[in-house]
């Protein structure tokens, strides 16, 4: 009996030692020499592998940083300034200051504002609907509301509001840009998050002439240009019957919001105005 125990112990121990030796040499032979700094950088990254930085995953991004030896043009949208600061410190590199951004849905053609003129009955996929027809409301530029952006989001940050039929971005958004790429109509844009989350933007991207745009959607930008004239900072441009507010120039003065005749310009997270604004009763829908 004892013999059995002894023999089996010896055999097992021998096997173990032999395997360890073999493994050691194999590991030596196939060792991959990697810059240890890649691990340091990767440890600092959020590890979500969202691809928002433009690389396939966090590790690829870390490799790119180490290879580039500079942080110019490289930024992790998820971690933002904090993470990039930590990486800069670890690598001894200068960090570019970047203002945090957030995804903004530039369409307010809700079911009420832009009523359906046809009924869509096919795969619930914006990219398909976009190739099939102009949309239930008839607006060829507006949100189709079928949720390609929702599917693309890895952060649970965008959802379709069942009442309006439009996507709503919440605070989980890290501005990785996946939804921007997923949207076949480029409705979503990454804009500065703004101080205290305050943002002003034109919630319409319809480039048709005013009358036609208005026929499909009562809150469309009609390209009247009033906002351009009133803007003291030259932040608003008008092209193809559509106003666009440059978020880098906009100082959030809110003059344009009051001026817009169709309520296409939205302000978010501002305190209530002292005097009532007649022109634009804001809907929360486009938050």
């Amino acid at each position: 009996m004892n013999e059995i125990i002894i023999y089996s112990m010896i055999t097992l121990a021998g096997l173990g030692i032999a395997s360890a030796v073999i493994l050691y040499f194999v590991a030596q032979k196939f060792k991959v020499i990697e810059d240890p700094r890649i691990d340091i950088v990767a440890d600092n990254l959020p590890g979500a592998n969202c691809g928002g930085c433009g690389f396939a995953g966090c590790r690829n991004f870390a490799e790119a940083i180490v290879k580039a030896e500079s942080l110019e043009g490289l930024s992790c949208p998820v971690g933002g300034a904090t993470v990039m600061g930590n990486i800069g410190q670890a690598m001894g590199l200068a960090v570019e200051a970047s203002e945090p951004k957030i995804a903004v849905v530039r369409c307010n053609g809700s079911k009420a504002h832009a009523p359906a003129k046809v009924v869509f009955d096919s795969a619930s996929r914006c990219s398909f609907a976009h190739s099939l027809f102009s949309g239930e409301s008839g607006c060829p530029n507006g949100c189709l509301g079928l949720g390609d952006c929702v599917v693309s989001c890895s952060f649970d940050a965008i959802h379709i509001d069942s009442e309006t039929g439009l996507p709503v971005v919440n605070d989980n958004c890290v501005a990785c840009g996946a939804c921007v790429k997923a949207c076949p109509r480029s409705v979503i844009e990454l804009r500065y998050k703004g101080k205290k989350d305050r943002r002003i933007f034109v919630s319409c991207i319809n480039t048709e002439k005013g009358a036609i745009a208005r026929k499909n959607c009562e809150v469309a930008c009609i390209g009247c240009g009033k906002c351009v004239k009133v803007c003291p900072f030259d932040a608003i441009t008008l092209a193809n019957n559509l106003a666009y507010i440059d978020f880098e120039k906009c100082k959030l003065c809110r003059k344009c919001v009051a001026e817009c005749p169709t309520g296409a310009i939205h302000e978010l997270n501002f305190p209530a105005r002292k005097e009532p604004v007649a022109a634009s009763e804001q809907t929360d829908a486009a938050v």
């Binding site: 096919s122 795969a123 996929r125 990219s127 398909f128 190739s131």
Partner: peptide, 13 residues
């Protein structure tokens, strides 16, 4: 299943 709808999107992509 909406087979052809998805295949069309796939073809374009």
């Amino acid at each position: 299943r909406h087979l052809l709808d998805h295949i069309r999107v796939g073809k374009a992509a």
